[in-house]
Nucleic acid binder design. Structure first.
Lengths: 231, 231
DNA sequence: GTTTTGTGCACTGTATGCAGAATATCCGCA
DNA sequence: TGCGGATATTCTGCATACAGTGCACAAAAC
């Protein structure tokens, strides 16, 4: 939502890079760390979170940890049970389907908007990412493919130049990330997914919003099917 | 997301009403209270929040207050500036347009889904609300109209039976509520808005998802125009 | 043997204390 | 009178302390 403080360059000459030393609050660091721990499965769904223990593990007192848990609860990664603390959220199949449906709608909106408002340079960046994706696919590197895949989807949403949309997309993608980590292995549907990405890249390149939205929709529908199988 | 604990009736005879005394955590109470204070304008946009002062005003120590602020930041109602605390978020016209665009997409999705999955009883409830809306409109009661209006939109999203969708809608609606509180007064467009609600009710009654989505889209577009004028 | 009641422990929720950063104040000086 | 810098104050961020709740285990009663 809010970018880093604008840092009005003291010297008149514009600063080439952002040299601000990243003084992120402890709270913020804990949030990102915990989010990773959840999405990467280091915290099992349904597991109760012991604040003292986890705090010690992170080398942090309970206060910033608790604040971080409130943030994660807002993102739907943990649930807050009164007088019983935080529990890692476990997603039912319906939860997943529901989130996917929203994710799909948001990305379709993003795709349409991106085709209208994106700069040529911005589109070029996404196409460059797509090129990397193709290479990873050819090489059969699943994990890098997975990461670039996510990056492309995020990049498209970023092109839409709508911070609210981006934020909601981030939240949902974080929820789904945990699931896809399970569901993305060994399936012949990989080829189909890659083909859809080709279509997406082509549609974006010619700024065909409707076509892009259509492919994105199909892509997510397939993704859901794949998850259903893995469940 | 999670409902109240089911309270398995201790006595074998089913308890007629829910007698559970509402022991919401202080944190939760502060969240709702603060949210109201923001949306009702008791906290001005851009205003820095003094934790001790606000804590005293609410009769609460800093700890639960700070936790509540983290939650509200996640909902985009306040912004957290490192080492400077929380400031009430101020929305630019673009922010509003962006959020409205997402809100529109979400409600259109909800409308389509509602026409498929909603029960007849659920639809009847929305139509009953619509009846109240019509009465308030006829009587010229703007504030009640405004509240029922919001309730109807929420109800339609609820019909879609998608908690994720509902949650995101809630967040965006809370953001917009603050704005509409300003923008909803004295305009001849009221009649047009009411007419659109008539269309919405009709489309929902006959479960015509596409028509419903179309009207909802128009409705929000008009809403944005109205806000633009008031700005 | 089963159910109930009591007690202890573990953990969350809230308040308070302390250190460091940011801002405001004041004084000297041009 | 205006400006710059040192100092004082205020406020956030984090840690810790305390109180209350829920749960588990055990003992007792039926």
């Amino acid at each position: 939502m809010s970018s880093i403080a604008p840092t009005p360059s003291i010297a008149s000459a514009p600063v080439p890079e952002d040299f601000a030393i990243p003084r992120q609050s402890l709270h913020g660091q804990v949030v990102t760390r915990l989010r990773d721990m959840v999405t990467e499965g280091h915290l099992a769904p349904g597991q109760r979170i012991n604040e003292v223990a986890l705090g010690q593990a992170l080398g942090v007192s309970r206060t910033p940890l608790r604040e971080a848990l409130k943030t994660l609860a807002g993102e739907g990664l943990v649930e807050l049970v009164p007088t019983r603390g935080a529990v890692v959220r476990s997603f039912s199949l319906k939860d997943i389907a529901d989130s996917m449906e929203v994710l799909k709608a948001l990305e379709q909106l993003a795709g349409r908007r991106a085709c209208v408002v994106a700069s040529d340079a911005g589109i070029a960046e996404v196409l460059a990412l797509h090129e990397q994706l193709r290479e990873r696919y050819a090489a059969g590197d699943r994990l890098p493919y997975f990461k670039i895949n996510q990056a492309i989807h995020t990049a498209i949403v970023t092109l839409a130049d709508n911070p609210t949309l981006l934020r909601m997309h981030e939240i949902l993608q974080a929820q789904m990330k945990r699931i896809r980590f399970i569901g993305h292995e060994g399936t012949e549907k990989w080829a189909a997914a890659m083909a859809e990405h080709e279509e997406m890249a082509a549609a974006l390149a010619r700024r065909d919003g409707e076509a892009l939205a259509e492919v994105i929709g199909r892509h997510h529908d397939l993704g859901l099917v794949r998850i259903r199988e893995a469940y």
